[in-house]
Design a binder for these strands. Structure first.
Lengths: 133, 133
DNA sequence: AGAAAAACCTATCAAAACAGTGGGTAAAAT
DNA sequence: ATTTTACCCACTGTTTTGATAGGTTTTTCT
């Protein structure tokens, strides 16, 4: 299951994509619009900034804004950045150590096929696809 | 991520499907073949029996066996039974309470589309697809 | 009748993940 | 100098995960 972190991250991105793309938007505004605790969003938006998805500016008039156009963000990168790997099983995650059963594992092909499906779904889906005027 | 419960359940089912379909197979044997603690498997196989996927027989000569043919089990039902709902977000689970934001939620269609994808994938995949001779 | 082999039942537990909260510091504009 | 903002660090309660431990009942075989 996708946790609140990934889901809220997506809502932050959608919220920003719906605002003036040039202006820095304070987190306070996002939190109020989305009805989510600003404190909690701080943790999440930090990941988005560190991951290079958002630009931030401190001080009065500061806030956050997108670094690219909405159609240039995939939902997959947003979720993976905040949520960790999309891999459905531990042995298929990036940092996974070699599974000794891999060659004999009858379920591995299933998990691989599933992992591909999930990856393609979320990486082909763009932030711009989630915004309606 | 699919947890060990769902993954081990699948391995139990595959193991049973690979044995003589008429005989009751003791859990001890399954545990040894799969290299998983029998005690832990007890918990998991209980779900499979209660969910109607397996027949069990107590006492000497007892054990577990499939109630249907391998091609009549979907991977989806096995995972969902042991793992709980396949829903990717809480608001799409069976027992979910109405989300007040549902009508305005810009991410809901995404989660629904994803939920369908996952559901179709796992319910179209049969236990028999995982077994090679 | 008794031993053995199996399922079945209940409780407990440590570690990790999840979902936050709280209090402060640094940076930038007015 | 004040205000507004991001940024940083620690902490906390709850739930889930991944088991382990010990005992009871059921069935078969001798």
């Amino acid at each position: 299951m996708i946790s609140t972190k990934g889901r809220y991250a997506l809502r932050i991105m959608i919220d920003l994509a719906s605002q003036d793309s040039e202006a820095f938007i304070p987190l306070k505004d996002i939190a109020e619009r989305q009805g989510i605790s600003k404190k909690y969003l701080e943790i999440i938006i930090k990941d988005l900034v560190e991951g290079g998805l958002l630009a931030s500016l401190s001080g009065k008039g500061g806030g956050y804004k997108l670094k690219r156009k909405p159609e240039e963000y995939s939902v997959g990168e947003i979720i993976e950045l905040t949520e960790g790997s999309l891999a459905p099983v531990a042995c298929l995650a990036e940092k996974a150590e070699e599974c000794p059963r891999a060659s004999a594992c009858m379920t591995l092909p299933l998990w691989k096929e599933y992992a591909d499906l999930v990856h393609n779904f979320f990486y082909n889906k763009k932030l711009s696809d989630l915004i309606e005027e």
